[in-house]
Computed example of a mutant assay.
Amino acid sequence: MSDFQGILAIIMIFGMPVFIVGIVAYFRAKDRAETQKTVRMAIEKGQTLPPEFLESLQKTGTLKEKTPERDIRSGLILIAVAGGLCVLDFMHGDFMFGGLSGVAAIPGFIGVALLIMGIVGKRKA
């Protein structure tokens, strides 16, 4: 029975992210289809579309612009993730900057870099 549980755990670990991304993609596609249907019906009825609505359609799906505030926020989140991994490693009882603490260094250093970029960007602006 333990082999089945191991295989099930591996399937869950790799399958859940795929499942979550699939659900997000499905609902985005459904939302786009509804928007296109609404626009098509408005055009068929001869209604004019306001410029604000057309601008909002163009902005949908585009990446948000990078700002120093976004860098600071992302940096703080990554530092918090690294801190959480370190605390988890400490609670496990073998806190010696190995294991999870070593893995925590990756998001930690990326977070510190983003934090520095955000602070420098704010000072320039």
Rank of each mutant, 00 (worst) to 15 (best):
F4N: 09
Q5H: 08
G6F: 09
L8D: 10
L8H: 09
I10S: 11
I11H: 02
I11R: 04
F14P: 03
P17T: 09
F19I: 11
F19T: 06
V21F: 15
V21L: 14
G22D: 05
A25P: 01
Y26V: 07
R28E: 12
A29E: 09
K30N: 07
D31A: 14
D31K: 13
A33V: 05
A33T: 06
E34Q: 11
T35C: 06
V39H: 04
V39F: 09
A42G: 03
A42D: 03
A42C: 04
E44F: 05
K45A: 15
K45T: 03
K45V: 06
G46D: 00
Q47N: 10
T48A: 13
T48I: 08
T48K: 14
T48N: 14
L49T: 08
F53E: 07
F53T: 08
F53W: 07
L54P: 02
E55M: 10
S56G: 00
Q58H: 07
K59G: 09
K59V: 04
K59D: 09
T60F: 03
T60A: 14
T60P: 00
P68T: 04
E69I: 04
R70I: 06
R70C: 03
D71C: 06
G75E: 00
A80V: 06
A82C: 07
G83I: 11
L85N: 00
L85E: 01
C86G: 07
V87L: 15
V87D: 04
D89E: 15
F90I: 13
F90W: 14
M91V: 13
D94S: 12
F95M: 06
F97H: 04
G98A: 12
G99R: 06
G102V: 08
I106Q: 02
G108S: 01
V112D: 00
L114K: 02
M117P: 01
M117E: 07
G118L: 06
I119Q: 01
G121E: 02
R123I: 15
R123L: 15
A125V: 12
A125G: 15
A125N: 14
